[in-house]
Amino acid sequence: LVRYRTISKIPQITLNFVDLKGDPFLASPTSDREIIAPKIKERTHNVTEKVTQVLSLGADVLPEYKLQAPRIHRWTILHYSPFKAVWDWLILLLVIYTAVFTPYSAAFLLKETEEGPPATECGYACQPLAVVDLIVDIMFIVDILINFRTTYVNANEEVVSHPGRIAVHYFKGWFLIDMVAAIPFDLLIFGSGSEELIGLLKTARLLRLVRVARKLDRYSEYGAAVLFLLMCTFALIAHWLACIWYAIGNMEQPHMDSRIGWLHNLGDQIGKPYNSSGLGGPSIKDKYVTALYFTFSSLTSVGFGNVSPNTNSEKIFSICVMLIGSLMYASIFGNVSAIIQRLYSGTARYHTQMLRVREFIRFHQIPNPLRQRLEEYFQHAWSYTNGIDMNAVLKGFPECLQADICLHLNRSLLQHCKPFRGATKGCLRALAMKFKTTHAPPGDTLVHAGDLLTALYFISRGSIEILRGDVVVAILGKNDIFGEPLNLYARPGKSNGDVRALTYCDLHKIHR
């Protein structure tokens, strides 16, 4: 019993810090008490220290592992850092350059016999395009090294910054494609005289377009951006097909006994025919423009016929181009109408809503002055909100995010209106959640004399007048207030005048 009563005193000691020596009952000389009392004092002292730490809000209350900052290894790049964003855009520009100039170089340097010394005699450094290609190869190699040090988000939505895990993730992902696209074939085969082989191998750079397509997928929600990307894709495919079309004609031209190829026909049409040795002929500019003209006309199913396939190889390629053109029509131009419709969806919704308003007016036989006010209010409210119901949009977000959005939407009023000066951010967040926005066209009466005042109004834009009878008592403008002081009276009061809008007004109100 003594032991039980001794232990039962522990909660009292913990909360009230009572010393055991003052209790005459606990001072009985028993061996059990002498053993338990020192333990009680020690526990009391420890609990006292913990309570003191909690009340003082000291940093040592938290466990040590929670006080440590997340460790980022040296030379690790955050995937959302500004440097990584700028670097990704730079790589994107280099990939676009590669997609345009690599097929052009591979096709127009394929057994090209233009006048001038061969590239091997001039030297590697004197070729501007080769120098640019070398810079692109170096940048792609540097990009691989950067990807080995860039964080990523795993399946659990955690940012991984450990170098080993980053390397394994990159090896399992895009490393092989990036490595093949970054191989400097110019340096590996330079001086061997195989410019045709170098041009063909350099087309491996186009593998990076797969990554670019995935990154550009984030802009699919913007109709104008999608339309622009589709047109660029169409032009890029036409450019690639033009390079292939020229390569076919250029390879067949020296081996044909009869002059029936499209390059021969082009030379005869523009007065620059090929001679018996295969030299001469149109310039590279004429060849490229004509090839691009043929691919565009074939892809769009126009086909004027002034550039036509004559050999079997050219006919087979033309059939493939027609098939590609039909697929592009289905996948690209078939979506253009939907994209344009999405661009004008706001206008369509406006006309639909206006039609419903006019049908309501016609069905209920609203008189002319009231009908005009109804239409003007709808037009003004639509121009202010673009038909978007803010309350319906915010309803799907958590309250903390709703408060931040409301604070942002009402920031101008909260910053410049005098009653809100000096208020804490928590108070402003709470008030912003209570605001209701209303609009009024010129001549609209917001409050009639004798109406119950259940709200306090803040003028965000425009001006109003307060009338008693036919006498203008006051004219209020931006950041002015009218209405009933909230919670100042037990019952809502009545208006002693009319409140009429002089201009288009936007008002925020808080109800009782």
Score class of each variant (00 low, 15 high):
L413A: 07
G271T: 01
K287F: 08
N368K: 12
A235N: 01
M390Y: 07
H416V: 06
Y384P: 03
W75T: 04
P282N: 01
Q127D: 14
T300N: 04
P441L: 10
I166C: 08
Y274T: 01
L446H: 01
L134K: 05
A440P: 07
I284W: 01
S383D: 15
G123T: 06
L292D: 01
R74T: 07
D137W: 01
D444H: 04
G199K: 15
L176K: 04
D286G: 01
T300S: 03
D217I: 06
S297N: 01
I177F: 07
P367H: 08
L200I: 05
V336S: 03
D88N: 01
K202G: 01
V132K: 01
Y377M: 05
P419A: 09
R358L: 03
N386Q: 14
K434P: 01
D143C: 01
I72Y: 14
A204D: 01
A167L: 05
I284H: 01
L230T: 04
N156E: 12
G271K: 04
I144F: 01
L327T: 01
R165H: 05
R71A: 13
S345T: 15
L230P: 03
I198K: 06
K425F: 04
R165D: 11
L110C: 15
F378M: 12
K436S: 09
Y219I: 11
R71P: 12
G346T: 13
Q379S: 10
W240R: 01
D88W: 01
L129P: 01
P398E: 01
N275C: 01
I91D: 01
G191I: 04
L176E: 01
T76Q: 05
I332K: 03
G191E: 06
F333N: 04
T290W: 01
S383C: 07
E112C: 04
P282I: 01
I388W: 12
A69V: 06
G271D: 01
L200R: 04
F234V: 04
P163N: 03
N335P: 13
Q253I: 15
E375L: 11
L374D: 01
I324T: 03
W382Y: 15
W75V: 04
T203K: 01
L207K: 01
Y293R: 01
T102H: 14
G193M: 04
Q253H: 03
